[in-house]
Amino acid sequence: MNKVWVIAKRELKSYFVSPVAYVVIGLFLLISGYFFYVILASSRMAEARGIIMNMSFTFMLMSPLITMRLLSEEKKLGTIEFLFTSPIKVSEIVAGKYLAALILFLAMVVITFQYPLYLILFGKPDLGPIFTSLLGFFLLGGTYLAVGLFASSLSENQLISAIVGMVVLIFLWVIGWAGDLIGGGAGNFISSLSMMNNLENLGKGVLDAGNIFYYIAMIFFFLFITVKRLEWKRW
């Protein structure tokens, strides 16, 4: 656990050395602020459902920018060999990298807490759905980052990592449509894999253990195959 933090700490520092973190956070807040204002002004309803869906989609396209360099850069610089010959497990390296991206994302989510705050100050919102929405957004974002980290383990080219990450995410976002088309048991199963469908309940304020389990399982699955991918490459 100690070593995980060593990796995460270095990664966080280097996020803020390059402009990537500032640009991603800044642009995301700009867009989500725009969504918040426009949706609120047109609907005149103190709720978060519309904005959460839009924020989720926006962040889906932006998250690979956060994760693309995590492993690709190590591969390109050759520092991955240094990590692999240091007394640290591959799983600890992956966990550390993921933790760094997650902390960066958490900082973003905390800043977006201002939106419910405005609602509370100027209206009487139903707080339940708002907080389950934010929880959903955090879990969903965590899944994005795990997928992005896996994509980053595939190539030493950051651009390719970002594109692969984006494509996998878009596919997981809309996989539910195929489920609707197929129908029956298989269709239900495919629908249950959709990131969008799992967010809907949380957006409504329904705290379903199944939805939460879905995200956590997805995160663990992608971190697991990232570890396997890194180990497999060397044999």
Partner: peptide
């Protein structure tokens, strides 16, 4: 290693600190 294991954006002392921790 042959390709130096260096993180180019880091300062020397904090890099060594990182390696020592690792």
């Amino acid at each position: 290693q042959e390709v130096l294991p260096l993180y180019h954006e880091m300062v020397v002392s904090s890099y060594l600190e990182f390696v020592a921790e690792l």
